[in-house]
Computed example of a mutant assay.
Amino acid sequence: MNAALRNWRTALAIALLSVGACMAVASPAHADELTGTLKKIRDEGVVVIGVREASIPFSYSDGGRTIGYSQAIALAIVDEIRKTLGQPNLRMREVTITSANRFLMLVNNQIDFECGSTTHTRERENVAAFSNSFFQYAVRMIARKNAGITDFPDLAGKPVVTTAGTSDERLVRQLNSNKQLNMRIASAKDHADAFAAVKSDRAVAFVMDEPILYGFRATDPHPDDFVVTGTPLGYETYACMFRKGDETFRDLVNGVISRMQTSGEAERLYNVWFTQPIPPHGINLNYPLSQEMRAMFAHPNDKALD
């Protein structure tokens, strides 16, 4: 072998080794300095996601598994985690959370992230980090149609229910104080219990996120007995939630959500859960995509609205 050929092969080998080294540094799945949520998931061999039991149609149980609009986004994020770590068979475990315990479970590492019906507010940024928004909605109420409730002043002096640990609880209590309505406000442990209070006439109205109210109305055996009503108390957004200070994981989650929204996949997913019959009873929420949601899909962002 002549000297020129030996030198060429040596140079080629060095070049290939350099490329391999750069790829190893660029890939977090093989980097020794992998930190945060991705390191936890890799080390434990499982990704743990928080799910809801009755946040229809976002994250809820159909009797056998968790399904919904938000759950589909969560599963897309899990797939991206598997690709990033190079672990296509990475296990996924679901942990049921409630409005009251979800932040504590996140901070205590009992879940890795959650995409359900968690509102992104500036105050909550002190506890958790939030992804790009995936839903925008109004805060309203559901009442029996024959109760004569059309707007929030009609609730003066009456029993009202909301869900404990939600931004809606803060809004309705603030309204009660500012307008001196003397509402008797109860805080239920979850959405299903709150709606049950209206059905059993223990409360005249359930104040909550508008799409969740439509979900309960649509899936009730007698949907025409109820009406979603009231001038919105405010407008808010849902986002996925994960631990603070983890920019690598934030980039991964936001990358998934942004691609879904700008590619048209998010709108197709929306139509599946809000404009077509959904499990388990085949009820259609008839809740078409708003112009505000279209604008959000066109320009993904992680800004709180409060």
Score class of each variant (00 low, 15 high):
S187I: 02
G68N: 10
A29W: 08
Q291N: 12
D32A: 15
E236Q: 12
S290K: 04
E33T: 14
L90T: 03
R217T: 05
A192H: 03
N178P: 00
A21Y: 14
L252F: 05
E267D: 11
T84G: 04
L233F: 13
R42N: 09
Q276S: 15
V127M: 10
M92K: 11
N2Q: 10
A31C: 13
E123H: 00
I149P: 05
D168I: 00
A186T: 13
A24M: 15
H30M: 15
V139D: 11
G20A: 14
E123C: 00
S200H: 03
E53D: 13
F206H: 09
N126M: 01
A13F: 03
A218Q: 04
T237M: 06
E44I: 03
A76D: 14
V139P: 07
H281G: 02
K303Y: 01
N301E: 12
D225G: 01
R42W: 00
I77S: 03
N271H: 15
W273Y: 14
L5M: 13
D201C: 00
Q87G: 01
L38C: 11
N178T: 13
E44W: 03
Y60M: 11
I14V: 13
A239Y: 11
K189A: 11
A29R: 10
I67N: 09
L252E: 05
E210C: 10
F103K: 11
G282Y: 08
M296Q: 06
D224H: 10
R124Q: 02
W8P: 02
M296C: 02
N146V: 05
N126L: 05
A74H: 07
A21C: 14
H299P: 07
N109I: 03
A76S: 12
I149L: 10
P88H: 05
N108R: 15
V228D: 07
D246F: 02
S18M: 15
S133D: 12
K39T: 11
V95N: 08
N271P: 09
A188W: 08
N284G: 09
F58C: 06
V228H: 04
V160S: 10
I185R: 05
V253Y: 05
N271C: 10
S200D: 07
H120Q: 06
S18Y: 12
H222V: 12
R122P: 00
A205K: 02
T66S: 15
P211V: 07
R140N: 13
F206G: 04
I14Q: 06
T229A: 04
C240D: 10
M23P: 04
A203H: 08
M208K: 06
N89D: 14
T118E: 02
L233R: 09
T118V: 10
L213D: 04
R42P: 03
E123A: 04
I111V: 15
T118L: 00
L175F: 11
K39F: 15
V95R: 13
R82Q: 08
D220A: 10
Y235I: 13
S61T: 12
G264D: 09
A72P: 04
A266R: 07
A197E: 08
H30T: 15
I142V: 15
T219S: 09
Y214D: 00
E80F: 00
D112E: 12
T119I: 09
E267M: 08
F113T: 02
L5H: 08
L34A: 07
D43V: 01
R294I: 02
A194F: 01
R173P: 02
M260T: 02
